[in-house]
Simulated assay, not measured.
Amino acid sequence: MTLLPHALVWRRTDTTGGEYAGYDDRDGLTAHGYAFAAAPVAYACRYELSADSRWASSRLDVTVEGPGFLRTLKMERASGRWRITTSERGNLNAVLPTAPLAGTEEPERLADALDVDLYASPLTNTLPIRRLNLLGRPAGTSSTITAAWVLLPSLAVVPSEQTYTVLGDGQIRYASGTFSADLTLDEGGYVVTYPGLADR
């Protein structure tokens, strides 16, 4: 595993849980992380994430495990298309009957997704913020993207329309559907406070 020069740690505020992310952002992003949560079922995950020099996501590998189950997801973007593979051991549905299958049966719906969004991970909010250079934009600037949203603990991947609006003073509003949150960011574009979800 590559040694990474920086690290961040978040505490979940909506449930018992947290996230550690080691990263190198000198040329795009290389990150390794670990996250755990007590709900909707106890799980832990580890991930490896890469984004190119333009901060467009290029690869995400995730392994998630919990009582009686282990799932893996590998996503790679090349030539404008995502290639997604999954595996499963045990039975997540035995402890979470509503959990969907890992991956997606319609990868073409992710064609416009340049960003991955790992469920409840503050780190992945940084990807579109840096890719769109929102930190340097005036208040009121707004961009809407399609992200490849990776649900936990199922590892299902769904397209998610998300809007980021610059508020000024280190804050950006994230909105998707009827949900919105005003994120407080540090000078690198990494989340300090995500109301209702996490802080550090």
Rank of each mutant, 00 (worst) to 15 (best):
residue 2 T to H: 09
residue 2 T to Q: 11
residue 3 L to W: 14
residue 5 P to C: 07
residue 5 P to W: 01
residue 7 A to P: 00
residue 8 L to Y: 12
residue 9 V to P: 04
residue 10 W to E: 13
residue 11 R to L: 12
residue 13 T to A: 02
residue 20 Y to I: 15
residue 24 D to P: 08
residue 30 T to L: 08
residue 31 A to Q: 01
residue 38 A to Q: 13
residue 41 V to P: 06
residue 41 V to F: 05
residue 44 A to L: 07
residue 48 E to Y: 10
residue 50 S to R: 14
residue 50 S to H: 15
residue 50 S to A: 14
residue 53 S to C: 13
residue 53 S to T: 12
residue 59 R to T: 12
residue 61 D to M: 00
residue 67 P to S: 11
residue 69 F to P: 11
residue 72 T to E: 11
residue 75 M to T: 11
residue 75 M to K: 11
residue 77 R to S: 06
residue 77 R to Q: 12
residue 79 S to I: 05
residue 80 G to C: 08
residue 80 G to A: 05
residue 85 T to C: 10
residue 89 R to F: 13
residue 91 N to T: 12
residue 92 L to E: 05
residue 92 L to C: 04
residue 94 A to Q: 13
residue 95 V to C: 09
residue 103 G to N: 05
residue 103 G to V: 04
residue 105 E to F: 11
residue 105 E to L: 10
residue 106 E to K: 15
residue 106 E to S: 15
residue 107 P to K: 07
residue 107 P to V: 02
residue 111 A to S: 14
residue 116 V to S: 05
residue 116 V to E: 05
residue 118 L to I: 13
residue 119 Y to N: 10
residue 121 S to A: 08
residue 125 N to D: 04
residue 125 N to M: 02
residue 126 T to M: 10
residue 126 T to C: 13
residue 127 L to T: 01
residue 129 I to H: 03
residue 133 N to H: 14
residue 134 L to T: 08
residue 135 L to S: 09
residue 136 G to E: 08
residue 136 G to A: 12
residue 139 A to F: 01
residue 142 S to H: 04
residue 145 I to S: 04
residue 146 T to P: 04
residue 146 T to Y: 01
residue 147 A to R: 03
residue 148 A to L: 07
residue 155 L to A: 10
residue 155 L to K: 10
residue 155 L to I: 10
residue 159 P to E: 07
residue 162 Q to H: 03
residue 162 Q to C: 07
residue 164 Y to F: 15
residue 165 T to C: 10
residue 166 V to D: 10
residue 166 V to G: 07
residue 167 L to R: 06
residue 168 G to A: 04
residue 169 D to M: 13
residue 171 Q to E: 15
residue 173 R to T: 06
residue 173 R to F: 02
residue 175 A to F: 02
residue 176 S to T: 14
residue 176 S to C: 14
residue 183 L to R: 04
residue 186 D to N: 09
residue 187 E to I: 05
residue 187 E to A: 12
residue 192 V to L: 15
residue 195 P to T: 02
residue 196 G to L: 04
residue 196 G to F: 00
residue 198 A to R: 01
residue 199 D to F: 11
residue 200 R to H: 10
